[in-house]
């Protein structure tokens, strides 16, 4: 199954709903090791994204749609999450410019571009206790699944499982990037809020993309 721009828009809307539902949880996680605004900021940004999608005529170009999402996040989220999430979507937009359909290979390339972008922007590597700890394993699992002959839907499912494991792995980590790094050893024992919201993004992909919406959602 391939995904159209309409499927991608549904993914963005599902992510908004998921962020809204988990807003307070994300803010609580951030209060423990950051500045207690991750849920609020992401919620504000994704509401703006949905408002923008509502106000923009639906087109076929997946790249254009992802660019709208990215630019809206950059201009509404603030903090570190705005440029970081914005960069994920803007790089995926560049990788999918002009495409009206994405298959597993197309998504693998887009996810790789998004993850490379966020690493270049934030200069974080695996183990720094950031969103990278969810996104890098997710993109790697997606690519591995596609290259092993899995469908795009199966690859999204594998990516969500990897992202969730990545989130859990942030709990014992000592933060080396962002505000949490000021805590040093005291940051250990807390789940990273950015990795958590990143997992929600991949989880929504597993529910909405790769034909999942047609064959029934996969709970991960």
């Amino acid at each position: 199954m391939t995904d159209s721009a309409a499927d991608v828009a549904r993914w963005a809307r599902a992510f908004q709903a998921e962020i809204a539902e988990h807003r307070d949880r994300l803010t609580e996680l951030d209060a423990a090791i950051g500045d207690a605004d991750h849920g609020t900021n992401m919620d504000r940004g994704m509401r703006a994204v949905v408002a923008k999608l509502d106000a923009t005529p639906a087109g076929d170009d997946i790249g254009a749609l992802l660019k709208t999402v990215g630019m809206t996040l950059v201009s509404t989220v603030g903090g570190a999450s705005g440029p970081l999430y914005g960069t994920v979507f803007l790089r995926m937009a560049t990788a999918t410019a002009g495409r009206s359909e994405l298959d597993g290979d197309g998504w693998a390339a887009a996810l790789d571009a998004g993850v490379e972008g966020v690493q270049a922007r934030g200069k974080a590597v695996l183990g720094d206790k950031t969103m990278v700890d969810a996104l890098v394993p997710a993109a790697a699992a997606f690519r591995h699944a596609v290259e092993s002959g899995a469908t795009a839907g199966e690859a999204w499912h594998a990516a969500a499982v990897a992202a969730r494991a990545g989130v859990k792995a942030t709990v014992p980590m000592v933060a080396r990037k962002g505000r949490a790094s000021y805590l040093g050893e005291r940051s250990a024992g807390h789940q990273d809020p950015g990795a958590t919201s990143s997992y929600l993004l991949v989880h929504c992909g597993a529910e909405q993309l790769g034909g999942q919406a047609h064959s029934g959602a996969v709970r991960t």
Partner: peptide, 11 residues
């Protein structure tokens, strides 16, 4: 020097 300020000013 705060991560958010640096990323937003860089962009």
């Amino acid at each position: 020097n705060y991560t958010g300020d640096i990323l937003n000013f860089e962009m």
